Simulated assay, not measured.
Amino acid sequence: MTVTTAPAGTWFITPGHAPDRFTTAHTCGADVALVDLEDSVPAAAKPTARAAARRFFTTSAMAGSTLGVRISSPATLDGVHDLTTLTAFPVKPQIVLIPKVESPRDFDIVAGILDTPDYTPLLYALIETPRAVQTLPSIVRADRIAGVLFGTADYAAAIASTMEWGPMLYARSALVTSAAAAGIPAIDSPFFDLDDLDGLRRETEQAKALGFAGKSCVHPRQLSTVAKVFRPTDEEIAAARTIVEAAETAGGRIIRIGHQMIGPPMVAAARSLLTRASMPHEVHA
């Protein structure tokens, strides 16, 4: 089963060597649920995680969230093992998240191993190194790219900074700009303080304002906060409807609503918001 559009909104990731958590991932209501074979899995547990991940993808589970997997870098032996294991799964992931992407070559490797006439998963790039930020214009033009995610933990470690909003702003801005230029969604990094829901809300609001289409979560309790931020408010929906209705009667001319001049880009943004608002949202804490 393959999805044909790039999901945004809430993303949730669970470690592959802990299959007792799979049901939570399937039922938490995230827009995208990923099983992880990379950073959250200790080296000694990676073979166990590969074997267990097979059970993450079932026909019944596919009826809920869009399901995917984060593999290890395809430039590593673990990544090669991950990819060859995925080819034997009876039900395959809809999304494959590729970490440590620094070149379009990573997409060629993954697609070359996984793609078949009946299966072409959505490939997302995890951008988490300074070199990746420098080469974003070429990465986002990869033939098989469906979207990008930002990884603050590795990026902050690479530049010897904290993960606060300020030090990460340049990389985030570069990411959303490159993604927008390529017409693909950008998903923000997780917020790692599980007990600071106010901090999570503030960072999520900043990410949305900057242009991110969603945010990753590392615990189910974070999902409702992130979903509420990215879900259009009643006021935003009403304003968007006013813009669209006025535009439809204006015959393509620039219109004025209140004190604001409304041109085609604002109309397109209003239509996009109404589309997002029409999608079902159900998150279970």
Rank of each mutant, 00 (worst) to 15 (best):
K100M: 11
V101H: 00
S103D: 15
P104L: 06
R105Y: 13
R105Q: 14
D106E: 15
F107Q: 13
V110Q: 06
V110W: 03
I113L: 11
I113S: 05
L114C: 10
D115R: 08
T116D: 05
T116E: 06
P117G: 07
D118E: 15
Y119E: 09
P121H: 04
L122S: 12
L122Y: 01
A125T: 00
A125H: 00
A125V: 00
L126P: 01
I127Y: 00
I127S: 01
I127K: 00
I127C: 02
T129G: 08
T129N: 11
P130M: 06
R131W: 13
R131C: 09
A132W: 07
A132R: 04
A132N: 05
V133S: 09
V133Q: 07
Q134V: 10
P137Y: 04
I139A: 03
I139K: 02
V140T: 10
V140E: 07
R141S: 13
R141L: 14
R141A: 15
G147Q: 05
G147P: 07
G147Y: 03
V148K: 01
F150P: 00
F150V: 02
T152D: 15
T152N: 14
A153C: 08
D154L: 04
A156N: 01
A156Y: 01
A156W: 01
A157H: 09
I159F: 05
I159H: 09
M163C: 13
E164G: 13
W165H: 15
P167C: 03
L169K: 05
L175P: 04
V176K: 00
S178Y: 01
S178E: 11
A179F: 06
A179K: 11
A180L: 01
A180N: 08
A181P: 06
A181E: 11
A181L: 12
A181S: 12
A182V: 01
G183E: 01
I184A: 05
A186L: 09
A186V: 08
I187M: 10
I187H: 11
S189E: 00
P190R: 02
P190W: 00
P190L: 01
P190T: 07
F192V: 15
D195W: 01
D196V: 02
D196L: 01
L197R: 13
L197P: 13
D198R: 11
G199T: 09
G199R: 03
L200P: 09
L200Q: 09
L200G: 12
R201N: 14
R202M: 13
R202P: 09
E203V: 13
E203G: 12
T204S: 15
E205T: 11
Q206V: 07
A209D: 14
L210Q: 05
G211S: 08
G211D: 03
F212W: 03
A213D: 08
G214V: 00
C217I: 01
V218C: 12
H219G: 12
H219P: 10
P220K: 00
R221W: 05
Q222A: 12
S224P: 08
S224Q: 15
